[in-house]
């Protein structure tokens, strides 16, 4: 089990996708890019759920993936709308410009 876990390339792909997303999420300043990074992480997880579902010979995971993609689509619509409004407010989508919640 452990050997096959380490040799299965899907694990590395998912880890790579997630790490790229996480890194972009933490260091990029452009709100649009951050949103894209979040999507990348989400889809890395989706991919992993699908893989595990196949490995367990169960359809439930696949249903969950399709469901998650659907919700993500709606969520992206909301996210883009927020970014649009941020741009309207400050003519910029640089997240460091928005520090109104500073304590």
């Amino acid at each position: 089990m452990t050997v096959s876990f380490l040799t299965n390339w899907v694990h590395y792909l998912v880890a790579a996708l997630f790490s790229v997303g996480l890194l972009g999420f933490l260091i990029r300043k452009n709100a649009l890019v951050i949103l894209m990074s979040i999507e990348l992480m989400l889809n890395a997880v989706n991919l992993y759920v699908a893989k595990v579902s196949l490995a367990l010979h169960s359809g439930a995971g696949l249903v969950l993936v399709v469901f998650a993609i659907t919700v993500a689509a709606a969520e992206v619509a909301v996210g883009l709308a927020i970014i649009l409004n941020l741009y309207r407010a400050k003519r910029s989508v640089d997240v460091d410009m928005f520090t109104g919640l500073k304590g």
Partner: peptide, 18 residues
């Protein structure tokens, strides 16, 4: 001292969260 954490910068919060 604690207010320093409340920078208002989203990514700082995110870093802490991660």
């Amino acid at each position: 001292m604690v207010t320093v954490l409340q920078s208002g910068r989203v990514q700082a919060y995110l870093l802490v969260m991660v």
